[in-house]
């Protein structure tokens, strides 16, 4: 195992139980999919944390630029009418 070329990084997502979403929980280094899944199993499900694992190569994830945070997300700050709690319901409306 030579250190001249590092194995690619894989992001690990674990589904804690049936019905819940896969949640990002960390990353592993591995040479291929098969070992990435096994490494994820060995590193992140040692305490019965999951019933399903996704791994995806970190360099395949397209991420937003942190420098654009203001432009991307601040415009939503003053649009409180997008929250359901903004609207007052008549007393007669139930079950919402």
């Amino acid at each position: 195992m030579s250190n001249t070329k590092e194995w690619p990084l894989w992001e690990v997502f674990v589904r804690p139980k049936a019905g819940l979403d896969h949640k990002h929980c960390g990353s592993v280094h591995a040479p291929d999919v098969e070992l990435a899944l096994q490494a994820a199993r060995d590193v992140y499900t040692r305490r019965q944390e999951g019933v399903s694992i996704w791994v995806v190569r970190a360099d395949q994830i397209v991420a937003s630029d942190p420098a654009q945070k203001d432009a991307l997300f601040d415009p939503m700050q003053d649009k409180i009418y997008r929250h359901p709690t903004f609207y007052q319901l008549p007393d007669d409306v139930n079950h919402i």
Binding site: H29, L35, Q38, A39, D42, V43, R46
Partner: peptide, 12 residues
């Protein structure tokens, strides 16, 4: 272990 992930695999 040759790499952290395999270190954990073997000790598991």
């Amino acid at each position: 272990g040759p790499i952290l992930e395999e270190d954990i695999a073997l000790t598991n």
